[in-house]
């Protein structure tokens, strides 16, 4: 379980990016974190991973997110970045998947076996020996997801997983996300994708939680969304 309890963050003195937010995410939940630019979505992700200091309390499975616990907390979480190039730093897909596994003490044989398993689960066997810089945008995103899932995290955080993808690759990513039976926190402006993948939505505005509840209810609330500089998902808009 992930718990934010009265969490506040300020980058500059007096300018709060997150302002006293509290929420809980239960195991196995799929939560869409939505909001206009600058609402604090990325900050929530970063603070959860202990990448920026915070006031208040953030816990992951009862473990407080602070310096001494960071390696344990991070072992439980996986992050898929918006820009896969920043995530795939090893020469080949296989090496990238094995990177984290080897860091956690797995032998090379075990790590490769595990990498094979995750590649086959995601239907990416042909990417195994491909060089990262030669992958297409969609392939790179799928490979980035594989690198995270191979670590078997309890929860996965995804930052704009479908941005800059064509409809075909977007659909593949959505289906992949739906097939992941772990806790998911997804930030995105693609509200149709959020609707497809999340059962719950947390709407952030000005660093505060403006709404928290059933995705189907919040994403259909035109007035609420528009008051927070968002729009109804395209599939719900009538011309």
């Amino acid at each position: 379980m992930i718990r934010f309890d009265h969490v506040s963050i300020e980058y500059e003195k007096g300018k709060r990016v997150l302002d006293d937010i509290s929420f809980e995410i239960r195991d196995g939940e799929s939560v869409g974190l939505i909001g206009a630019n600058g609402a604090g979505k990325s900050t929530v992700m970063k603070s959860l991973l202990g990448l920026i200091p915070h006031e208040g309390s953030i816990t992951v499975d009862g473990l407080e997110v602070y310096k001494e616990n960071l390696s344990q907390v991070r072992k439980k979480l996986g992050l898929v970045l918006q820009n896969s190039d920043n995530q795939m730093f090893m020469p080949t897909v296989l090496e990238d998947i094995m990177f984290g596994l080897l860091n956690y003490g797995m032998s090379r044989e075990e790590a490769e076996k595990k990498a094979d398993g995750i590649l086959s689960k995601l239907g990416l066997e042909d990417l195994k020996y491909r060089h990262n810089h030669k992958l297409s945008g969609g392939e790179k995103r799928m490979a980035a997801i594989a690198t995270v899932l191979a670590m078997e995290p309890d929860a996965v955080l995804m930052d704009e997983p479908t941005s800059a993808l064509d409809p075909y690759n977007r659909r593949i990513i959505i289906d992949t996300i739906r097939g992941m039976n772990i806790t998911k926190i997804i930030t995105s402006h693609d509200l149709d994708m959020i609707m497809d993948t999340c059962s719950r939505v947390i709407l952030l505005s000005g660093g505060r939680v403006a709404a928290d509840g059933d995705a189907d209810v919040i994403l259909r609330d035109k007035e609420l969304l528009e008051s927070k500089r968002l729009e109804l998902p395209l599939s719900l808009q009538t011309r």
Partner: peptide, 12 residues
């Protein structure tokens, strides 16, 4: 971002 991604995968 890259360094964050490395840290999250146990880089030491």
């Amino acid at each position: 971002e890259l360094y964050s991604s490395m840290l999250l995968r146990g880089f030491n």
